[in-house]
């Protein structure tokens, strides 16, 4: 197992979420769920992050921010779309300012459903993301050889 998958660092960005999923992401870090015991740390810096957690759908104003954050992250990287809005637009899919799920702008590896996504399913999504991260790391290693 690569070192990154033992202690992945997470970057959280709120695209246009209603906060429900955001506070559940933060709840994952606090004593009841405490993902830090698995080495998962929330960082504010895209350059240090391995996993990008995005909550909420994408709109015209923030699509460039989402793209920039994704591009600033070093490879290998995994994108986890948290909540139904990030997956497909959810309850807001018919709103005039919503372009759709996060996958309309950047490639998404893991989709976490729910409104709001429960902390258990967010943790599950991140763990599924770790498998993708390891796969990507191995591919990069093979390409180097």
């Amino acid at each position: 197992m690569a070192y990154t998958t033992k202690s992945p660092w997470i970057l959280h960005y709120d695209a246009s979420s209603c906060n429900g999923c955001d506070i559940e992401v933060l709840a994952c870090l606090t004593p009841l769920y405490d993902v830090e015991r698995f080495g998962i740390i929330n960082t504010g810096d895209p350059k240090q992050a391995d996993i990008l957690l995005i909550t909420g759908a994408v709109n015209d104003q923030n699509k460039n921010v989402v793209k920039q954050l994704y591009e600033q992250m070093p490879d290998p990287k995994v994108v986890v779309a948290v909540g139904i809005c990030a997956c497909s637009g959810g309850v807001f899919r018919d709103c005039y300012n919503i372009l759709g799920g996060v996958d309309t702008v950047i490639p998404v590896d893991v989709y976490v459903p729910g409104c709001a996504a429960r902390p258990e399913s967010i943790i599950d999504g991140v763990v599924k993301g770790l498998a993708v991260l390891e796969e990507k790391t191995n591919k990069m290693k093979e390409a180097k050889r």
């Binding site: 979420s17 759908a57 709109n59 923030n62 921010v65 709103c95 300012n97 919503i98």
Partner: peptide
């Protein structure tokens, strides 16, 4: 501002 604007007030029409 405007990063989180969804325009949900207009959904009242549909």
């Amino acid at each position: 501002i405007g990063y989180v604007h969804r325009g949900l007030e207009k959904l009242a029409e549909t």
